[in-house]
């Protein structure tokens, strides 16, 4: 990185546990547009990282780089010590199985029932027997209050229900980290709570999480560490108290004034 004034510092989510995700000098260009301009970040096992920032700041791109849905232009993304930008396709598939992702638009599979959505990956990718996969799916669905929706098709569900199914679909692969890309942004306001509740429970159970969100209250309650991104860089990072109560950078202060 060619920043003259600031020396390179790696943002570290900081709890004492081992580093799960290690991002170094990550840059992403879309044509001439530089979306990420050198990100250095450690995410440690069990931590909940919340990414905030104005739209176009690169936070979704950063999240999507973690499981290589976006291929970095340069830099490295390591998961459990393995550099995802260098591995073979087969290894990448294996690594992605260990990371769950939840999308803003749910992206449920419309041709499969709820049960099929949750079991397709364990069955087809992992080769889990159908009965076993379904038993686990029902268990997980029951935990998020959707036991009665098992045999519905996604288009018969509300937005909040869809997103809970999407979370369960990711959890069915026993991921070590969950990536949430604005999971409540497409929801009607009255449904945001039910999704956030599931996420809070996950966090309480010790799941490692990276969450891009505009829900500042959620960020404050659940995050171990908050990253403020602007213009493709991590402008400021710290505990929720540090970021929300004592933001140091003018851009952070400015952003928080607008959204709070």
């Amino acid at each position: 990185m060619k920043t003259a004034q600031t020396e390179k510092t790696v943002i570290d989510s900081g709890s004492g546990r081992d580093v799960m995700i290690e991002i170094r000098d990550l840059c992403k260009h879309f044509g001439r547009l530089e979306v990420l301009k050198g990100i250095d970040l450690n995410v440690r096992r069990g931590d909940v990282i919340v990414l905030i920032g104005p739209s176009g700041s690169g936070k979704s791109t950063l999240l999507r780089s973690v499981n290589l849905l976006e291929k970095p232009t340069s830099g490295t993304v390591k998961f459990d010590g393995c550099d995802l930008t260098k591995v073979s396709r087969r290894e990448l598939y294996a690594m992605r199985q260990r990371m769950g992702m939840v999308f803003q638009q749910f992206n449920l599979f419309p041709h499969l029932r709820v049960l099929g959505n949750v079991t397709v990956s364990p069955r087809r990718v992992r080769g889990v027997p159908q009965a076993e996969a379904e038993k686990k799916a029902v268990e997980l669905l029951t935990r998020v209050g959707l036991a009665d929706k098992v045999h519905e098709y996604p288009d018969r569900l509300s937005g909040g229900q869809k997103q809970r199914v999407a979370i369960v679909r990711a959890l069915a692969m026993d991921p070590e980290v969950m990536l949430f890309d604005e999971p409540t942004s497409a929801l009607d306001p009255e449904m945001v709570g039910e999704v956030l509740d599931v996420m809070k429970q996950l966090a309480a159970d010790g799941m490692t999480m990276m969450v891009v969100t505009h829900e500042m209250r959620f960020a404050r309650q659940v995050a171990d560490y908050v990253l403020f991104l602007d213009d493709g860089k991590i402008v400021e990072a710290g505990t929720p108290e540090e970021i929300f109560d004592h933001p140091q950078q003018p851009r952070t202060q400015d952003f928080l004034r607008k959204v709070l």
Binding site: R98, P110, S121, R169
Partner: peptide
């Protein structure tokens, strides 16, 4: 939808698995 492909990718599906179980059934319909 592109999101279907991304969801399949995020679950660790290979290109063939994604095509067979996710994309093709929807395309055929």
């Amino acid at each position: 939808d592109r999101g279907q492909s991304e969801a399949a990718d995020s679950l660790g599906m290979s290109g063939a698995q994604k095509m067979i179980y996710i994309i093709l059934p929807q395309a055929i319909k």
